[in-house]
C-alpha cells in the first residue's frame, strides 16, 4: 500500500443507478443514498495478479478458444490502450479482462438465445496484464450489434466489456468500449445511463491506423482512467520524487 487516500468518486461522471429507459435498472438500483466516507486500508489495498496466473493466448480472442488451432470469424482488430489513474500515471501490472459477443452479435453464454449462430472458433473472453507503463493490448474480432429485450426495438451498439483492477479494490471498475462511428451508440439506453455526454464519448474508441497492420488487422485505441490516490506533500514524499 503506497500513497494516500483514494480520490472520492465523482458520481456525476458515472451512470445514474435508476433509469427508466434501462428497465432492469429500476428494481436493481438502491433508493437510499450511498454512505460516502474516506477510503480505508480495505479500499486502498487490492488483489494483485501475475503472469503465472495467465495463459499464453489469454490476450488473443481470435485464437484462444481453439488453443491457437483456428481463427475466429470476423473483422480482425487490435484493441489497445493505457490504464491510467487520475494523476495521469500508468498503472503497471494491473489486470484487464474483456468479454464480448461474436461477429454475429451472439455471446457464448448459456443464457444467450439470440438467433445468430455461435462461432465454433470463438469463446469471447480474454485477459492480460498492463506493462510497466500501463499499456495493454488484445487481438480480437469486432463484435456484432444485437437486439435485446428492453423497449420495443432496442439494439446494443458493438461493444467490448472491460473489467479493471488497478492496484486497489476501491479502483475496481467495469465498463464498455464502443466503436467510432457506430450510429447505435446514440440510441443505446445503456450508454445513455451516463448523463454527461463527454463521459459517453470517452467510451468510444477511435480507429487507430498507426497500430493497424497492413493485410492483417485494423486497430482501435481505448484508454481507461481509474481512481487516483491523493497525495499530501506535507505528510510524505510524493511517489516518483
Amino acid at each position: 500500500m503506497s500513497g494516500g487516500r483514494l480520490i472520492p468518486r465523482d458520481r456525476d461522471a458515472h451512470p445514474v443507478a435508476h433509469d427508466l429507459n434501462y428497465k432492469t435498472s429500476v428494481t436493481r438500483s438502491p433508493s437510499m443514498p450511498l454512505l460516502s466516507l474516506e477510503s480505508t486500508p480495505t479500499e486502498e489495498s487490492g488483489p494483485r495478479f501475475g503472469h503465472s496466473d495467465l495463459g499464453p493466448l489469454d490476450h488473443d480472442l481470435i485464437r484462444n478458444w481453439t488453443g491457437g488451432k483456428e481463427n475466429a470469424v470476423g473483422e480482425r482488430i487490435l484493441v489497445h490502450g493505457r490504464v491510467l489513474d487520475e494523476q495521469g500515471r500508468g498503472l503497471p501490472g494491473s489486470l484487464v479482462e474483456v468479454w464480448q459477443a461474436n461477429a454475429g452479435g451472439r455471446y457464448r453464454h448459456k443464457m444467450d438465445g439470440y438467433l445468430a449462430p455461435l462461432d465454433p472458433h470463438f469463446g469471447g473472453a480474454g485477459r492480460c496484464l498492463t506493462d510497466e507503463s500501463g499499456q495493454y493490448a488484445f487481438m480480437t474480432i469486432k463484435p456484432g450489434a444485437y437486439p435485446w429485450p428492453n423497449r420495443g426495438n432496442d439494439w446494443r451498439p458493438a461493444h467490448i466489456h472491460f473489467s479493471l483492477f488497478g492496484a486497489s479494490f476501491g479502483q475496481r471498475l467495469i465498463t464498455q468500449m464502443y466503436f467510432e462511428g457506430d450510429p447505435l451508440i446514440d440510441r443505446c439506453p445503456i450508454a445513455h445511463t451516463i448523463k454527461d455526454r463527454s463521459q459517453i464519448d470517452r467510451l468510444v474508441a477511435p480507429l487507430d491506423m498507426s497500430r493497424s497492420r497492413p493485410l492483417d488487422h485494423l486497430a482501435y485505441r481505448f484508454d481507461i482512467v481509474l481512481r487516483g490516490r491523493r497525495q499530501s506533500y506535507f505528510e510524505n514524499r510524493p511517489e516518483g520524487l
Binding site: 435498472s25 489513474d85 453464454h109 469463446g123 471498475l173 467495469i174 450508454a191 445511463t193
Partner: peptide, 27 residues
C-alpha cells in the same frame, strides 16, 4: 483525467470473469 464511466456488467459477465459458471470451463 477524470475516471472513466462505469457501464453495467450485463447478463453475460460470467463468460469474462467466471467462465466455468457460464459453461465455458475451457476458456
Amino acid at each position: 483525467h477524470s475516471e472513466t464511466a462505469s457501464q453495467t456488467a450485463g447478463p453475460y459477465v460470467h463468460i469474462g470473469l467466471m467462465p466455468t459458471h457460464a459453461g465455458n470451463s475451457s476458456t
